[in-house]
């Protein structure tokens, strides 16, 4: 047993002065950050060419914790800001780490249009089934009959199936994992960083303090126990059938296709127009 304090091997990817982070004990956001940082370490990513963008929400703090260029944006507009970054300098790798409320409630329209254009930004969405930061209101991913502060008798709204939405909108890589599948999630993030075009990973994440407390899962271990019991790995199955229910969470990679990305098409078009105008001038 070694007693003296040794620095964590991944601490060069984190802003040490911000650690320890503010997330609750058992929160899945720390695991998402851990897997992201592990993937960066395995890829030996160039930190000067990486931009982490995040929106508002608990996981929005990620941008402040990673030791890269980072952008903490307004609520729901993380994809809009990231689009600007990517179009201004297509050489940068732009990764969005944000939550379900940010990306799919207020930012839903940005998401579907970024996926339709197939712009080369990478989205990692932590889905904790509610608005955790503001006190646990029901959101677009709250399962049916779940109890939240704004649905004390059970939720009667149908939730979004995020992987189906991303696949239908035209994303070139779509996957879903839970925070228990850390190895596969890390592999998936590595794949996401290497791919061209719009990529999306949904991470089903435990929120024991806010969501679990009202739904008979008071600790992070109980929520992880639910993921362990309910999750089924089905790679390349139909995302339309991958609904999240209390008995069944279908995880895996759903879509992996090659498609020309928007920033390439856009910059090609600009080059064409420039050539034509130069011909006219001469």
């Amino acid at each position: 047993m070694v007693q003296e304090i040794v620095a964590h091997p991944l601490s060069k990817y984190l802003r040490e002065e911000m650690m320890p982070h503010i997330w609750c004990a058992g929160c899945g956001n720390g695991i998402v950050l851990n897997c992201f940082v592990h993937a960066l370490d395995e890829l030996k990513a160039d930190l000067d060419k990486l931009v982490v963008v995040s929106g508002i929400g608990c996981i929005g703090r990620t941008a402040g914790y990673t030791n890269t260029a980072s952008f903490h944006t307004t609520h729901g507009r993380s994809i809009a800001f990231a689009t600007g970054v990517k179009l201004a300098n297509p050489e940068l790798d732009v990764v969005i780490v944000s939550g379900d409320g940010d990306l799919f409630a207020i930012g839903g329209n940005h998401f579907i249009h970024a996926a339709r254009r197939n712009i080369g930004i990478k989205v990692i969405c932590a889905n904790n089934f509610n608005y955790g930061m503001t006190g646990g209101q029901l959101g677009p991913t709250t399962p049916l009959e779940a109890l939240t502060t704004t649905s004390p008798y059970g939720n009667s709204e149908h939730p979004f199936n995020l992987v189906h939405l991303a696949a239908a909108a035209g994303a070139s890589y779509v996957a879903r994992w839970t925070t228990l599948h850390v190895r596969r999630l890390t592999q998936s993030i590595k794949r996401l960083m290497q791919k061209e075009g719009f990529c999306f990973i949904e991470v089903v994440s435990p929120c024991p303090e806010i969501f679990g407390r009202r739904n008979k899962m008071r600790s992070g271990l109980e929520m992880m126990g639910w993921f362990r019991k309910a999750s089924v790995v089905e790679n390349f199955s139909d995302p339309a059938k991958a609904d999240i229910t209390p008995d069944r969470i279908v995880v895996g990679e759903f879509v992996d296709i090659e498609k020309m990305s928007y920033e390439k098409l856009f910059h090609e078009k600009i080059a064409q127009i420039n050539e034509k105008t130069m011909e006219k001038m001469s």
């Binding site: 047993m1 964590h8 091997p9 991944l10 601490s11 984190l14 650690m19 320890p20 982070h21 997330w23 058992g26 929160c27 899945g28 956001n29 720390g30 695991i31 950050l33 851990n34 897997c35 592990h38 925070t179 228990l180 850390v182 190895r183 890390t186």
Partner: peptide, 20 residues
């Protein structure tokens, strides 16, 4: 500690970067 098989799952699943 002798039983450890170096799978490093603890360090991968730790949300607080407290074990490696």
């Amino acid at each position: 500690e002798d039983k450890c098989i170096l799978c490093s799952f603890c360090s991968a699943v730790c949300p607080d970067f407290a074990i490696f």
